[in-house]
Nucleic acid binder design. Structure first.
Lengths: 334, 334
DNA sequence: CTGTTAGCGCCTTCAT
DNA sequence: ATGAAGGCGCTAACAG
């Protein structure tokens, strides 16, 4: 043994006195192997500290243990949480997530899909249904499993896992109106990047319309959501002077900012102004009054998605949709 | 052209009327190529929509465009931010990050190092200096570049990028004592998992010792840091009755929780109680009074690390250490 | 500046 | 239940 150089299948085979093929079978747990043979092989494997070369395996089998994960952003805490769920679903398997970030740019997404496909991954996971035509074609043409996460309001390529954002918006409207608020305003962020926020807005308006109401004011900031911009946006909309009893925010980041403005400006919540967010972030529940919000179960979405995708290497005839639902969190701010 | 099947180098070569090798050279931008030849090759590449098979490339070159990234957690926002920095450093290159999460478990880290090395990555990035012996041996034996991030207080295997947590702790002590506080308490979380928090604690104690002071109280919660546990911990330490003028928290999560307790319990900040955190999270700056804290530049750490690691495929003779420093943020809570 | 020749380490297929 | 042969798609020498 010249040691030092990394051991290959051949080394293990020699040491265990079997063919490479048998070693390969043991590793992949495929085909029947005599218990005694398996024992010898395993012994040889850890005697040598053998670790299979994934590149060679992928090349030979034209498929890899990689799961490509494409996220719009890492700044928004919900995506790391989605990633956590994906990780949890991958735990105990040999799959490794390879990740990319689009910054909400569909061209970048297409680019990422292309480079991820170059690894012949077992699955590609992305968010939403918006893709460039080329991206969609590449995904459809490749035979990898495709998960489109967060949203379920359209027909997916292969599998969608998420919740109805329109439904969540309606639920927010229902919650607020049932609590007796009728002068309701909306404070949100950029819809171009965040289509799901827009869907919730539409649901909110529909829900209000159902009971003969409409938004009394709305304010949208440019750029992504953040605590700071939520704080500023609420200050701005209140400064406009419209009479407002409750504010529905595009998400918890914005809502927490709004709440902090109320604290700083001594606006009684919810008596003078009720606040409601979306997502159910931890920070919202740590506020002096826990935030009324809607729990979108990001972790479950990610976990369910990988588990479902990896169950079978092939797509079904019909795309599947898994609704992970949402839960109203009453809180104390609305 | 039988279309449908994914094109390979051979297809491109045939179409461009050159050898496979030439195509390979064009793709990797290696060796001199006649402008005319390069044009033809590129034309053929996008005529066919050719995407190189990464597995084949890795196998042949025994090195891949993968950067293995091992994070202790995704729940703590600082690690997604570190990942953002890593991403930023990778932007515009063909490298792809493959990520793993240890949940602060060194055995899991070792396991991840092993499976990531199976991909023959260009570099492996992990956090801190604590690894199992086996893990350290694997990293040292492999010739991949190794980045150990966040901390710089020990000798790295290859490259360390981060800040001195002991120094940051001392800086917190200095800040608080200079502001005239002398009855200082500490509220923190689990040190076993978070060694850097422990290092800051030690620095804090040293810094106080330098001016003849010592902590008047301390409280540590089990488990990871969170806003909720910070809130509860501050409530607990105040209930104990010791006279306290200022509290140094193990990080901003805990400190924000503490601040929220003060808001809820109507404790005037900083007049009755001063608060200081660590990290410089956005949420701390959105509070009614911006949190006094220490900015640890996670994004820069990640970005600098990959940029430095990928500059050269080989390790230097001596390990390198890059200090990204920290910045006191005065805020208004201390 | 370009082509030829050998693998890289594993998996698949077909035998036995 | 195991082995032998061939090839996956690319890159690394070495020629020329």
């Amino acid at each position: 043994m010249t040691a030092l150089e990394t051991p290959t299948l051949a080394h293990v085979a020699r040491l265990a006195n079997v063919s490479e093929n048998t070693v390969s079978r043991v590793i992949r747990d495929k085909g029947a192997i005599a218990p005694e043979t398996r024992r010898r092989v395993i012994e040889a494997i850890d005697a040598l500290g053998y670790v299979p070369n994934r590149a060679a395996g992928s090349l030979a089998s034209s498929s890899s243990m990689i799961v490509g994960v494409i996220l719009p952003s890492l700044s928004n805490i919900v995506f790391p949480e989605l990633l956590r769920g994906i990780h949890a679903g991958l735990a105990g398997t040999s799959y490794q997530p390879m990740i990319g970030v689009t910054d909400y740019d569909l061209e970048k997404e297409q680019q990422l899909i292309s480079s991820l496909l170059a690894w012949q991954p077992a699955a590609i996971i992305t968010t939403g249904f918006d893709h460039t035509d080329a991206a969609r074609r590449m995904l459809e043409a490749s035979k990898v499993r495709v998960g489109e996460l967060m949203d379920i309001d359209r027909r997916p390529i292969d599998l969608a896992v998420g919740l109805s954002h329109r439904g969540a918006g309606r639920a927010m409207a229902r919650h607020l109106t049932r609590r007796g608020y009728s002068k309701i305003a909306y404070v949100g962020h950029d819809w171009d990047a965040d289509r799901r926020a827009h869907a919730r807005y539409r649901g909110l308006c529909e829900g209000l319309g159902d009971v003969g109401l409409a938004l009394v004011a709305e304010h949208r900031v440019d750029g992504p959501s953040s605590t700071l911009s939520g704080r500023q946006a609420l200050a701005a909309i209140l400064a406009d002077g419209a009479e407002i009893e409750a504010v529905a925010f595009s998400n918890d980041d914005m809502a927490v900012g709004g709440y902090l403005h109320c604290l700083a400006a001594a606006v009684p919540v919810p008596d003078r102004l009720a606040l409601m967010g979306f997502n159910g972030l931890e920070i919202g529940q740590a506020l002096p009054k826990p935030l009324a919000t809607v729990l979108s179960n990001r972790f479950a979405i990610g976990k369910t998605a990988v588990e479902t995708l990896l169950k079978s290497p092939d797509r079904a005839f019909e795309p599947a949709i898994i609704d992970t639902g949402f839960t109203i969190i009453d809180g104390a701010t609305a």
